[in-house]
């Protein structure tokens, strides 16, 4: 009976843990995507200061959740996001708005991919 209870507890924990991770990743990536979209708009309008500030805000947000994301997501996907931040950051420092816009687009795509990989959709199921 103890074994059965343990199995039920384990199963419930796994399901709840899965739901929590989907919720957290979805929440964080939506927020990041939103911030990065705003940064893209700023870069398109050649407002380098605002774009850099939004990029920095997004990076801070990502770094705050990095440990949790490392525990549940493939490290290669996270590396793409890290690389995206590094490249966009370099463009922001060089004040190259057109390149920054491109890098932010790629970064947003990498962030959206994180959500897609965790999404409970039929595509992911099959």
């Amino acid at each position: 009976m103890k074994r059965l209870v343990t199995a039920v507890v384990l199963m419930v924990s796994v399901i709840l843990g899965g739901l929590y991770s989907v919720h957290t990743v979805s929440d964080m990536t939506s927020r990041l995507s939103h911030t990065l979209t705003a940064a893209q708009h700023s870069a398109r309008e050649s407002d380098g200061t605002a774009a850099a500030s939004l990029l920095s805000e997004a990076q801070q947000d990502f770094e705050n959740h990095e440990r949790f994301l490392s525990a549940i997501l493939n490290e290669r996907k996270l590396d793409e996001v890290r690389l995206g931040f590094a490249r966009a950051d370099a463009c922001a420092r060089l004040d190259d708005q057109s390149q920054l816009f491109l890098e932010l687009t790629a970064l947003r795509q990498a962030v959206d991919d994180l959500l897609r990989s965790e999404d409970t959709s039929l595509e992911n199921l099959f």
Partner: peptide, 25 residues
């Protein structure tokens, strides 16, 4: 694959073994 988080192996393992115990019950 070191890029795969440890939980990526542990969660299916825990699921399978729990299901096995539940099914045997």
């Amino acid at each position: 694959d070191a890029a795969v988080p440890l939980l990526g192996g542990m969660v299916p393992l825990a699921t399978l073994l729990s299901v096995e115990v539940l099914l045997s019950y």
